[in-house]
């Protein structure tokens, strides 16, 4: 058995007929108001149908073609990983690191040998050298200066003779 709401919806849609229609319309308390409501519902339905209609596609064939191409591309991409696995990259990170470390080690070894060969030849520049020396001739007119290495090269000596002798009290701290 239909409820009132179902009958009302069917009446609005014009789906009631015969005795059922007569019986429903007789049950309406205000038929004029119901008719007005029915008209409004039809107007609203027509308006919505007009506004919500989908836009017609102008270049339908083009979009179909694009879709087919995209699907074919995806299908091809699915096969690529299998092929990529067969051929590894030429210089992966790990190999680059090893090449770098090996180069560094070779550089260090070469540097070591070059420095070792160069060492003895330049040894003199690593020893203490007196570049110049002078005494005030007014204070020490008879002073003489000589420079030499002593103790089998253990010390470099600046030997100054002729400086004025001083009393022993000058030896205090």
């Amino acid at each position: 058995m239909k409820t009132f709401e179902e009958k009302w919806t069917a009446w609005l849609d014009g789906e009631l007929s015969g005795d059922e229609l007569a019986e429903f319309e007789a049950s309406l308390p205000d038929k004029a108001a119901a008719e007005a409501e029915k008209r409004d519902a039809h107007k609203l339905g027509a308006f919505l149908k007009e506004q919500l209609q989908g836009r017609a596609m102008g270049n339908e064939e083009f979009f179909h073609h694009q879709l087919r191409e995209r699907i074919a591309g995806d299908a091809r991409a699915a096969l690529v990983p299998e092929r990529a696995g067969a051929k590894p990259a030429l210089w992966p990170i790990g190999r680059l690191v090893w090449v770098g470390a090996t180069s560094l080690a070779i550089f260090c070894v070469c540097t070591f040998f070059v420095m070792r060969e160069k060492g003895p030849a330049d040894q003199s520049q690593y020893l203490t050298q007196i570049l110049n020396a002078r005494v005030d001739p007014a204070v020490s007119p008879n002073a003489t200066i000589s420079m030499f290495e002593s103790g089998e090269g253990k010390v470099t000596v600046l030997w100054v003779d002729g400086l004025q002798s001083l009393p022993s009290e000058y030896a205090t701290k």
Partner: peptide, 19 residues
């Protein structure tokens, strides 16, 4: 005096006689 002093070899300077 001006000298280039290295770690390998100390520098010794003979100064005046004191006492």
């Amino acid at each position: 005096t001006e000298a280039k002093v290295s770690k390998a070899r100390p520098l010794v300077i003979k100064g005046p006689q004191v006492g």
